[in-house]
Amino acid sequence: MRIDMVVNGKEAGGEVEGRTVLSSFLRDQLALTGCHVGCDTSQCGACVVHVDGQAVKSCTMLAAEAAGSEITTIEGMANADGSLNVIQQAFQDHHGLQCGFCTPGMVMSAAALLKENPKPSEAEVRDYLEGNICRCTGYHNIVKAIMAASGQDVVPVAAE
């Protein structure tokens, strides 16, 4: 079937099968390979994108159901001039990523959290990340980056 949607502010579309999940459509047909797939049980959150402003796991949504929606992926998060947005910059500043594989989903979840709760407590950040698994960072610097992105004071990165 034919589906059309707006992805990162641009019209996009293509032919999909019923079984095509949104993450496959984004990766395979739109070449938006920043959307990562790290599990098959809807738990790791590497595939989180925004569908009509809501963070969803794109591996657990049929592409057909996203027809007519507005989608934002990690590729659509930077500022208009290509510079990192506040959240992305905070992740770099606070070393909130290592291998980078979970990072797109983390950033998309963080953006959804801060939209809903502009000044989350540490516990709220940790709770909100229940569906995003990172194996590298131990989350410490991810939590820190998100709090910093919300304008809260955090301990700066290590310096000798």
Binding site: H36, T73, G100
Partner: peptide, 28 residues
């Protein structure tokens, strides 16, 4: 704190591509 060289907490240059979805993993 040093701003470069040994002992500096230089920000990671690889982060920019990972934070913008431009990493190049094998499945890509």
């Amino acid at each position: 704190p040093k701003d470069g060289g040994i002992g500096a907490s230089s920000k990671r240059r690889e982060d920019v591509r990972f934070l913008t979805g431009e990493g190049n993993y094998t499945d890509d």
